[in-house]
């Protein structure tokens, strides 16, 4: 399988924050979910991939080439960055006709219709959710092969969010298409992502297939006595609560047999984030 995005030893520093070094391969034909708390470096990673900010070190290839030469093939939704708010979707259509060689006005209008958005309504008068829909329609209307989306579903109600997620699933039906999606709404990723990339404090701390996470990982809830019996190699991280411990275990099947007294729940991405960020990590994940 070819890589849609290939990142090697990427490093980007700001005063008080460093992203990297990060090496990451995003294969073609899948949806990759990028998670991490606020300020973890998700947007910096996306902006560095897109050359919006300059990297300090490392190599980035998008569809095997330098990103500048494949921008026609990339659809973008950036968090808090779009057209000036006194423009309307009709203006945007007219502008992007002269920006993208593949711009499809008919498709753009179809998306606007399906989202119930008027062509002449200026962005300023739209709700946050409506504006997001225009951004998504814009990202999809030049037949891109790669979608890079930073918080594309924030501000959308659950019904529209589902519609949008379905759009992304339709997009990915073509095996040449790829999506890199950063979001705080981790439940969205549980439904659609094939691979999860987790960034914390600028470091890549997890990069696994979704099924591997949900089939193998679990949260073991136990008291201090049982916690002390847990072997270090079985746990990835743990968090001490007031009355019990939450332990992130790396093999639910093995641990259920091994620690019969403890309850082991299925994991959600939210649990995973909480325990990895707020808890203490062990070295078992590196085995």
């Amino acid at each position: 399988m070819k890589d849609a995005i290939e990142i090697k030893n990427l490093r980007k520093s700001y005063p008080g924050f460093t992203l990297g070094e990060i090496s990451l391969n995003i294969p073609q034909g899948i949806i990759v979910g990028l998670i991490g708390e606020n300020g973890a470096g998700k947007t910096t990673l996306i902006k560095t991939i897109l050359n919006v900010v300059n990297k300090d070190n490392g190599n980035i290839c998008v569809m095997g080439k330098d990103v500048e030469s494949v921008k026609e093939e990339i659809g973008i939704v950036l968090d808090n960055s779009f057209f000036p708010e006194i423009l309307n979707p009709g203006n945007i259509d007219s502008i992007l006709k002269d920006v993208y060689g593949n711009w499809d006005s008919e498709l753009f209008n179809r998306y606007l219709d399906s989202f119930s958005i008027k062509r002449d309504q200026i962005l300023k008068t739209m709700s946050k959710g409506m504006r997001k829909k225009v951004e998504i329609a814009t990202a999809l209307s030049h037949h891109p092969k790669l979608l890079i989306l930073d918080e594309p579903t924030s501000g959308l109600d659950p019904i529209v969010r589902n519609e949008v997620l379905d759009l992304f699933l339709d997009f990915i039906q073509d095996e040449e298409h790829t999506i890199l999606l950063s979001t705080h709404i981790t439940s969205d990723l549980e439904h659609i992502a094939d691979q999860i990339v987790f960034i914390d404090k600028g470091k890549l701390i997890l990069n696994k297939e979704r099924n591997e996470i949900f089939d193998n990982y679990g949260i073991m809830r136990c008291g201090e006595e049982d916690f002390n019996k847990v072997e270090k190699r079985d746990m990835l991280a743990f968090k001490r609560n007031r009355y019990e411990y939450d332990v992130l275990v790396n093999d639910v099947t093995v641990c259920r047999k091994k620690y019969e007294n403890c309850i082991i729940d299925k994991i959600t991405l939210e649990d995973l984030m909480l325990i990895m960020v707020k808890g203490e990590k062990t070295n078992a994940g590196n085995d």
């Binding site: 960055s81 779009f82 920006v99 993208y100």
Partner: peptide, 24 residues
């Protein structure tokens, strides 16, 4: 004032990811 709108709406990041965005 078009510069002002571009700054206020953080257009620059989006503009830069368009084909030849910065140059154009």
């Amino acid at each position: 004032t078009s510069f002002s709108y571009d700054d206020f709406n953080s257009w620059h990041g989006y503009g830069a990811v368009l084909p030849q965005g910065r140059e154009n």
